[in-house]
Design a protein around this nucleic acid. Structure first.
Ligand SMILES: [Zn+2]
Ligand SMILES: [Zn+2]
Ligand SMILES: [Zn+2]
Ligand SMILES: [Zn+2]
Lengths: 173, 173
DNA sequence: GGCGATAAGTTATACTATAACATTATCACG
DNA sequence: CGTGATAATGTTATAGTATAACTTATCGCC
């Protein structure tokens, strides 16, 4: 396993060509589902696309509303079931501290999703780091705890937002 | 800052004298509130005591129900406001992945609450480790991210529960 | 005791998520 | 093709979590 992060693409949502992110995510998803023998139906595909509308975690009821624009009226189970599928297949992650969902940029690789979440722009960048994994596993192991799932969510200010308005920034007092 | 954890006290809830945990937590809270010039009212004290009924995270509506046994009918804002106060003063932590709250065993020391949460017995052990802090801060710092709050929640099996019933335990396959 | 500030009570409502059952689509097989 | 098993979606109702907005009570101080 090697380290990666999506800070660059996630935190400059307004400058990069996000349509490429979406297209890429959908293509990868298609391929992966094919490969795993599961069905990325039109609905699931559409929900994945909607989740990918930005790099900000999006709530289930936001998705519901967006979906309603296409289809007529949509009920909660519709979107929750799609989300469940996408989660199960590693195509999205759930952000616990926000009750929201965000697209996974590298669903091919097995990984726990660790996130940096900016309180100003709202974007979430995923990061994976063998160092973090190892440190957490080791510490848990010392205590006899067997880790099955990890939630790591760091909230604060992204680079861009710190530059734009340095409220509560790093170097203050 | 030094490392600590509460795995022993949290994960053997049925064998240790938990009344001591509660008494100690309440005393520390009294002292701390006095010291900080904030009011640990009867209600807030009671909610803190109820949160401490066990080492398992407890939901707001569970607290509501417990409170109703004392006082008559109680409405949600009552318990949420008490929780808000206790959170603000570091006397409890919120477990994001459970929408629940757990008492903090060392509210004197500034710290991010990191947790091991057993899926069988439900107990949550708090751990603080400079290594974890450092690893997370460093990785975030590399990406220009300024961390203000950390949520770290590891779910799995505690030592005792692994011993009692080794389903999905460590050494399998 | 009067007064400003903080806390608690009250009512209503928003937001998040799932249970349970009906209907429709898909696919393997004959 | 038909047909039945399986998976997916639709539909209705309800459970669970959290806050807004306003009123009343309490506290600390003069
Ligand atoms: Zn993008
Ligand atoms: Zn930002
Ligand atoms: Zn205890
Ligand atoms: Zn356990």
């Amino acid at each position: 396993m090697k380290a990666f992060d999506t800070a660059e693409t996630s935190f400059d949502s307004h400058t990069h060509d996000h349509r490429r992110c979406v297209r890429s995510a959908l293509q990868t998803a298609e391929a992966l589902c094919q490969q795993h023998g599961v069905r990325l139906t039109a609905l699931r595909r559409r929900v994945l696309e909607l989740v990918w509308t930005s790099h900000c975690p999006v709530g289930a009821y936001d998705l519901l509303e967006m979906l309603s624009k296409d289809q007529g009226r949509v009920a909660p189970p519709t979107v929750y079931r799609a989300l469940e599928f996408l989660l199960a297949n590693g195509l999205i992650h759930r952000i616990e501290s926000r009750n929201a969902f965000v697209g996974c940029p590298h669903p091919q690789e097995a990984h726990a999703g660790h996130f940096l979440i900016c309180r100003v722009c709202g974007a979430a960048a995923e990061l994976s780091d063998p160092g973090i994994e190892a440190t957490l596993d080791q510490r848990a192991g010392e205590l006899g705890f067997f880790v099955e799932a990890k939630t790591v969510e760091l909230r604060g200010l992204c680079k861009g937002c710190r530059a734009r308005r340095p409220d509560g920034g790093e170097q203050s007092a």
